[in-house]
Design a protein around this nucleic acid. Structure first.
Length: 607
RNA sequence: GCGCCCGUAGCUCAACUGGAUAGAGCAUCGGCCUUCUAAGCCGAUGGUUGUGGGUUCGAGUCCCACCGGGCGUACCA
């Protein structure tokens, strides 16, 4: 049940004979869309202009013909030609009322099952373990989690895989730190904490301005760490044993953060170490099939033009080749990525693989996807779900290494504290106006603040187009006004409050729904908005854009606020209207709760 | 140098992928609490969509040039 699909189905038989090219029929039907301006009706159709041009007619005339040819139906109340040839569509209120009543019994609230359902592998979060998680990791995690929930809700199969950075220099640093600076008592008491201290301590031994990258260095400490890393990779000494000892602690630390944020458990956490044993086989295969060649002692895959530019001069002119084995014999991330595709295709048989990684790796994914296709993986959709940088309030990209590392957990605490303060202030203000405000226990208050605070952080991220850069402003996101999680949660709490105050059991509205009456404009607008939920889910899933769900939520919650102000529910003029409004309120609550759940955000019964 | 992305109200962002008078929130100003939660609602102010051309019935959106910013450019991931 999707209003748009239904409308398009109505127009299809009329447009089919008019479309000059049958392949373009879908395009024309796509020009039926929600009205940009509510004054123009509920939906608008914009196909008359291009269609008239192809037919050599005037758009308004063609629009009139289309309207006249429209089959009799129970959906469209009126269709009017306006402006240069727009068709403004108004839907029948009776139809809307019946449709709303129809979704009341649907656990999926009108969202149809995906047809056909697809199998996805989504790769997201992918932090370097043993380093503190900072705000830069937030976006991939939150966006990937939301996409997983959205696609699963549609009925797709989603395998989630956290491609951990668990085989890099940071472990050389930990091993070096363990050997030189370990506080044994502290390690036994709280290994995670001591490892974190060691990492930072070793990092501080590096010369100023030096980073952790591989490559030649004359920094003695960095060199020592690199040597420990190399020994780990070669399986020498007890480095592997130490790595095995550290890993569970690092993972436990990571999962603490995920739990705090309410991130779905990953199906797999196959990190770099998992794929390491497969890398040499991949390179051998690439060479054997002629996909890769040896160049300057390294093994590379030529670029899309089939060339291997190597000199700075050549590299200035064209796309670089992909390095799969370095001169020193070590493998690269490209090798690892190809091994990952290989493994996933064999084990999960996906229709699509999504990589939720920031936009700076766009070139890498472009070339890596091309290489994967050349290796024979040309039947699986490979998509880079790119997102913008996390910027500080100064609009400069937030960086881990620029000193001020912004860790995640303190930030979550800050957000929940702000939510708690807001609750107290709000309760005090309500009391000063003589309202009865229930005195909640500390535990309940903290639970509410937790849901709102975590929701604020996620919503602030998800409500932006993911391709934009993202200014991380703690004050703004924990604000409770406007298009924020708190506004949606508040709307939900108001829905629940009506049932609580009225002592009404909502079960009846979900199993045996009463007739719906749409008398007031606010009721009609709300019903229309409720019926658009499937459109929003479709759109968000089609382009992997969670902000289309928040945009929908914002419209729905606003429509509910207007309804809430103008339409008494418990004291409705007639029992029929009371029942009808109760059904609407119950449905609004369910849709808000479901839509927020698609974003990984929880709700509270009161706030 | 070459390539990718971005530039929309004072600030933060939308604009359903070429549709009607470019919309929200914050901030500012004004109004609404003896009626289901005022974390709310109603209203006002605020724009040459970086600049200049072009394409067409129609451009924030597509093309070209320029200005400004970010990022990337095989042996970091």
């Amino acid at each position: 049940m999707n209003l748009l699909t239904q409308l398009r189905g109505l127009f299809e038989p009329v447009l089919a004979p008019l479309a000059p090219d049958p392949a373009k029929l879908a395009d024309y039907l796509g020009m039926i869309r929600p009205a940009a301006n509510p004054d123009h009706g509920d939906y608008q159709a914009n196909f008359a202009m291009p269609l008239a041009k192809a037919a050599g007619k005037k758009p308004p005339e063609l629009a009139k013909e289309v309207i006249a040819a429209l089959p009799a139906n129970e959906v469209v109340e009126s269709a009017a030609v306006a402006g240069p040839g727009f068709i403004n569509l108004k839907l029948k209120s009776d139809f809307l009322a019946a449709a709303v009543r129809g979704i009341a019994t649907d656990p999926k609230l009108g969202v149809p099952p995906a047809d056909p359902p697809r199998r996805f592998v989504i790769d997201y979060s992918s932090p370097n373990v043993a380093k503190p998680l900072h705000v830069g990791h937030l976006r991939s995690t939150i966006i990937g989690d939301a996409l997983t929930r959205i696609l699963r809700f549609q009925g797709h199969t989603v395998v989630t895989d956290n491609h951990l950075g668990d085989w890099g220099t940071q472990f050389g640093m930990l091993i070096y730190g363990y050997r030189n600076f370990l506080d044994k008592a502290a390690y036994e008491a709280d290994p995670v904490r001591e490892l974190a201290r060691l990492y930072v301590h070793v990092r501080n031994q590096f010369r100023k301005g030096d980073d952790e990258d591989e490559g030649p260095t004359d920094d003695p400490v960095k060199k020592a760490c690199q040597e420990e890393t190399a020994r780990l990779h070669r399986g020498e000494g007890d480095n592997v044993a130490l790595w095995r000892e550290f890993m569970p602690h690092c993972l436990a630390d990571l999962h603490t953060v995920y739990d705090r944020l309410g991130i779905l458990p990953f199906d797999f956490e196959h990190g770099e170490s998992f794929y390491d044993p497969m890398l040499s086989g991949i390179v051998d295969r690439l060479i054997a099939t002629g996909t890769a060649v040896v160049s300057q002692g390294a093994v590379v895959i030529p670029n899309a033009a089939g060339r291997v530019p190597a000199t700075p001069d050549e590299l200035a002119k064209e796309e670089p080749p992909a390095l799969v084995r370095k001169r020193d014999g070590a493998f690269t991330y490209t090798t690892s990525d190809l091994a990952t595709v290989d493994y996933r295709v064999e084990h999960f048989r996906p229709d699509a693989m999504l990589y939720v990684v920031d936009f700076r790796q766009a070139l890498h994914f472009k070339t890596f996807f091309a290489q994967a296709r050349r290796m024979g993986y040309d039947r699986v959709e490979l998509t880079h779900i790119s997102f913008g940088s996390v910027l500080g309030p100064d609009r400069k990209p937030k960086r881990t290494r620029d000193g001020g590392v912004e860790e995640l957990l303190p930030l979550v605490s800050e957000a929940t504290a702000a939510a708690l303060a807001k609750y107290e202030a709000n309760a005090a203000e309500r009391r000063s106006f003589g309202h009865e405000v229930p005195e909640l226990g500390d535990a309940e208050k903290r639970a509410i603040a937790d849901v709102i605070g975590v929701g604020a952080i996620k919503y602030a991220d998800l409500s932006q187009n993911r391709t934009s850069d993202y200014v991380f402003d703690a004050d703004r996101m924990t604000s409770t006004e406007g298009n924020t999680a708190a506004y949606m949660q508040y709307a939900y709490a108001r829905c629940r409050s009506i049932f609580r105050e009225g002592g009404v059991d909502e079960a009846r509205f979900r199993t045996d729904p009463p007739a719906v009456v749409l008398a007031e404009p606010a009721e009609r607008a709300l019903a229309l908005q409720l019926l658009r939920f499937p459109e929003a889910v479709d759109a968000a899933a089609a382009d992997y854009l969670p902000h289309l769900v928040t945009g929908y939520l914002w419209d729905l919650a606003k429509a509910y606020s207007v309804f809430f102000e103008s339409c008494p529910v418990l004291k409705a003029p007639t029992p029929e209207l009371r029942d009808s409004r109760l059904l609407l309120v119950d449905l609004v609550g369910r849709v808000i709760k479901q839509a927020l759940d698609l974003l990984g955000i929880r709700v509270v019964e009161r706030m």
